[in-house]
Every structure is written in structure tokens, then in C-alpha cells.
Design a binder for these strands. Structure first.
Length: 527
DNA sequence: CTCTCCCT
């Protein structure tokens, strides 16, 4: 029996978990062969982790790529990209250009600048086709990047790092790499994710450069100095397991019978505090007992391939007789903020379309409304198009929902509807997410857990309403500490769903300083 | 006053 772990260099959460599990299993299975395939040269780490496993080098079939650096750092890399593209366009032989930027906003700005300057240059230059690509771009627009470039013209694709690994565009000869990407990181002290523009790693820069050499010899223009490449960039990207919430990983490992997570053989262990917070939250949710063992509830939660809070919400829907609705909400929440399409040139239309879905109570109920209307339309693509809804995301939500619904039998939850009453739905959400409560005080919203100042995301249906008590689905720092996907609750529900976690005194309006009762168990007892 | 990526 052979197990192959491919693309190991990507160091995704799941590859890293697999590493630990397989190493463990291999000890008891002399017949088991493990093959780890990595596209980077840091084979030492993998070999060392798997007890000095032999390394085989297989040369790639790639064309050479000349790398060029800037003499001095660029103050404005967006502008530098635009200038570089135009320079390549007027001075270099035929071949398409790929530009790496960090996100939608930058990409849109870059495309606009390029189009504007081409318009001004008019017939003085050959035609330049400017095409954006990022994950949230509707599929029909994504497809355009694959159209062959007409003779005499040149194509420039402006991409996120979706073009670094996930898709390959034929005909790219030139790559422009400003050396930045958006990276997720996770603060276990506050439970907050951040999405911050950071310098990418050398491994990532090399991967980008490689995109220029797939069909012929190419050129890569790095908009940073050779010195910065050598001395300022990290060798490799920090593995995802060290940058993310580990709630469902911990639940999964516990359900596999791995109790001592603190000493689990991770190739790169996650921060201790991240494990501790995950254990603490699972304890608060009732998934673990005071010994850190999986409870019956925890075992049922582990059956669902979603985050523990979402899982708890689904299980709580049984009690409130609203599993039909909660399944839909869970599915809609699982497709990340990509339901509503909001192109820059049609923001007014898109925002109006979104307003039509708004119902009282909050974003979860708006998402439910969108899904139900889509079902009524017969899962129509046209309906999505007319309502500025992303069909791809809806189809994904439907897949997730089907999968979750298929698991309801196994966790013994009957699928029933509360027939339009929002209170049971919001109570079920509260039962899963009581850890994520925020309260309005005179200075704005503060989290109940850490008294941290947070803001309702401008996309939210409650952006202007400002209800006193909110539950948020996630807390993300982008330009500010934003609560994304919020729902209005009554403070009394917190006592109803989590009496072990909240005391009534803490929820009185007069006492704004009170913290939730301290958890009784320490990390050692739970670990 | 806003949106890296991926899909168990």
C-alpha cells in the first residue's frame, strides 16, 4: 500500500495534519510506503521529519527564465506595475504578461490605470488586452483569460496568487512580481484573523517566476531589489497550521482518539496558545469534558465537516426545530463572503439588488432569504445574474447543504422547518456562537470576551441599525477590526443557551465592565 | 465604508 502526498510544499492545513497522522500510522505498518512530492528544494525538512527518508530529485521540464530586479525599492508598486507592463508592451517581442497583485481592489485599480493609459496612447501602440483574474470574479469573466490572444495584440493578465498555483495560462512569457501577497494570520489571544499585505516568500517568488517559462524562455521582472530578495524575504511561507484557527483540527484529532495534542508530532507545531484556545472553546461548547475527552455532543459535532461553532449551531437547531433553515445558513456561511457580486462599475445596481434581500434580524437571515429565493427560481443561473448573486457560490452552498443534510441521519437530527419564525433560528446561531458576542456601548461595539473594539462590516445588513447585542460569525482585521456576518440577539438568550458560560449579572446593561465567568479548567487539564 | 487562496 502506498500513500502519495502531492504538492507537499504548499503546506496546507490538511497536508500538515496528514503528515502527523501518517507518520504515526507508519510506525505500526511496515507494509506502508509514503511518497511525499514537493516542488521546492527544501527536501531536507520532509526527509528529516519522516525519519531521514531517501530523497529523489526529478528534474522539471521548464524553460529558462531570466530574472530582473529593480535597482532601488519601489515606493508605489501599483504604479511600477503599470509602467513595467507598458514598457514590456512597447519594447519586448511578442508574448503575454502576467502581473501578480494582492487582491480585487488592487487588480481593478491596476486594470483601470492600464486601460486609461492605453486609451491615451491610442494607435501609437499595439492593442493591449487587459484581463483581471481572482477567485471571486464571476466564472464567465474568469474564462476570458484563456482566450487566445489575437495576432498583433498582447494580453496582460492581472492576477492574485490564484495564478501562482491554481491555474495555468498558456502563452505567458513575462511575469511582473511586486513581491507581495495577502496573508491570513491568526491571533489566538483575541481569536481574530487578519488579512494583511505582506512580502511573499522566496519560494513564492520563484513559483511566480516559473510561470514565465512554461511554453518558452521567459522573463520575470521583480519590482524589488536583489538585496531584498536575498536578505528581507523569508525562505518559505509560514505553514497554514501556524496561521489559522484550529478548532476543527482539534475536534478531528480528538475524534480519531488522539488525546494529547500538545505532544502530537506536527512537522511545524502550531502556537501553543492556538491549541489552548481551541481546547477552551471546545470545552465551552460542550464538545470536551473537564478531562479534555470528547463528549457525546462532541462526537456528534465531529461528524460534520465544519467548524465546531457551526457544528454546534446545527446540533442546536434540533432543539429549536429549525434545522431546515440552519442547514441553509451553515452552507451559506461556508462559502466565504462571495455570495454577492459587486463590480466596481455597477456598485449602485449591485447594492440595490442586495437591499432587496434584506430582512430584519441580520445577515444570517439575509443569506437564508437569498438561498430560498434561489430555490424558488429553480436554482436559476439567470436569476443569479439579474440579482448580482454569484452562481458559482450558490452552487457551492447547495453542495455543502446537500452534504450536511446527508449527515443529519448520522447525528440523529430531524430536518424540520420553523416556518419563517426567526427567533428559533437566531437562538440556534447563539447556541453555537455565544463565544462571539459583541455589545454596543457608547464607544461602539466591544466583544464581550475581550472588551475589544470591533466594527460591523459595511457589507452587513445591520451596518446602520446598531442593535445592542450582536453575534458575529467571524472577526477579521483587514483595514479595521470587522465583524463579518452579524445577527441581532437578545441578551437573555445567552443565559438560555450557555448558562455555564454567562451569568446574568454580566449581561446587565449597567455593568459594562463585567467579563464572562472564567473557565474552570486549565489547558493542562484539557490537553 | 469593504472583499488572499482553497473546498474537507
Amino acid at each position: 500500500c502506498v500513500i502519495i502526498i502531492d504538492e507537499a510544499h504548499e503546506r496546507t492545513l490538511h497536508t500538515d495534519i496528514l503528515f502527523g497522522l501518517i507518520k504515526d500510522i507508519a510506525r505500526f505498518r511496515s507494509d506502508l510506503k509514503v511518497l511525499v512530492a514537493s516542488a521546492t528544494l527544501d527536501t531536507e525538512r520532509f526527509s528529516c521529519f519522516f525519519d531521514d527518508a531517501p530523497v529523489f530529485r526529478i528534474p522539471g521540464r521548464r524553460f529558462p527564465v531570466d530574472i530582473f530586479y529593480t535597482k532601488a525599492p519601489e515606493a508605489d508598486y501599483l504604479e511600477a506595475c503599470v509602467v513595467s507592463v507598458l514598457q514590456i508592451h512597447v519594447t519586448q517581442p511578442p508574448g503575454d504578461i502576467l502581473v501578480f497583485l494582492t487582491g480585487q481592489e488592487e487588480i481593478e485599480a491596476c486594470c483601470e490605470l492600464l486601460q486609461e493609459r492605453c486609451r491615451r496612447l491610442g494607435s501609437k501602440i499595439a492593442e493591449l488586452l487587459v484581463l483581471p483574474i481572482y477567485a471571486n470574479l464571476p466564472s464567465d469573466m474568469q474564462a476570458k483569460i484563456f482566450n487566445p490572444t489575437p495576432p498583433g495584440a498582447r494580453k496582460v493578465v492581472v492576477a492574485t496568487n490564484i495564478a501562482e498555483t491554481s491555474l495555468t495560462i498558456d502563452g505567458i512569457i513575462y511575469v511582473i512580481d511586486p513581491g507581495f501577497c495577502k496573508q491570513k494570520s491568526y491571533n489566538a489571544r483575541t481569536g481574530m484573523e487578519s488579512l494583511i499585505v505582506t512580502p511573499c516568500s522566496r519560494a513564492s517568488a520563484n513559483q511566480r517566476a516559473g510561470r514565465a517559462g512554461r511554453v518558452a524562455a521567459g522573463k520575470c521582472f521583480r519590482l524589488y531589489t536583489a538585496w531584498a530578495y536575498k536578505h528581507e524575504m523569508e525562505e518559505t511561507t509560514v505553514p497554514e497550521i501556524q496561521r489559522t484557527n484550529l478548532g476543527n483540527v482539534v475536534l478531528l484529532l480528538k475524534s480519531l482518539g488522539i488525546n494529547d495534542l500538545i505532544h502530537f508530532d506536527f512537522m511545524d507545531p502550531p502556537p501553543h496558545e492556538t491549541l489552548v484556545l481551541a481546547l477552551e472553546q471546545l470545552y465551552a461548547l460542550g464538545a470536551l469534558n473537564h478531562l479534555g475527552e470528547l463528549t457525546k455532543l462532541g462526537r456528534r459535532m465531529a461528524e460534520l465537516p465544519v467548524d465546531p461553532m457551526l457544528s454546534k449551531m446545527i446540533l442546536a437547531s434540533e432543539q429549536y426545530k429549525c434545522s431546515e433553515e440552519v442547514l441553509t445558513i451553515a452552507a451559506m456561511l461556508s462559502v466565504n463572503n462571495s455570495i454577492f457580486y459587486r463590480p466596481k462599475d455597477k456598485v449602485v445596481h449591485a447594492d440595490n439588488a442586495r437591499m432587496n434581500f434584506v430582512v430584519p434580524g441580520g445577515d444570517h437571515l439575509v443569506l437564508l432569504n437569498v438561498y430560498n429565493q434561489w430555490v424558488e427560481s429553480g436554482y436559476s443561473t439567470q436569476w443569479c445574474y439579474e440579482n448580482f448573486i454569484q452562481f458559482r457560490s450558490m452552487r457551492r452552498a447547495r453542495d455543502v447543504r446537500d452534504q450536511l443534510e446527508g449527515l443529519m441521519d448520522r447525528i440523529e437530527v430531524e430536518v424540520v422547518s420553523c416556518q419563517g419564525d426567526s427567533v428559533p433560528v437566531r437562538k440556534a446561531v447563539t447556541a453555537g456562537y455565544f463565544y462571539h458576542t459583541a455589545r454596543l456601548s457608547k464607544g461602539g461595539y466591544k466583544t464581550v470576551k475581550h472588551q475589544q473594539t470591533v466594527y460591523v462590516h459595511p457589507n452587513s445588513s445591520l451596518f446602520e441599525e446598531q442593535p445592542r447585542w450582536l453575534i458575529y460569525h467571524e472577526l477579521v482585521f483587514t483595514t479595521k477590526e470587522f465583524m463579518r456576518q452579524v445577527i441581532e440577539i437578545e441578551s437573555g438568550w445567552l443565559l438560555e443557551v450557555a448558562p455555564h458560560y454567562y451569568k446574568s449579572k454580566e449581561l446587565e446593561d449597567s455593568s459594562s465592565k463585567k467579563m464572562p465567568r472564567k473557565q474552570g479548567k486549565t489547558k493542562e487539564e484539557l490537553g
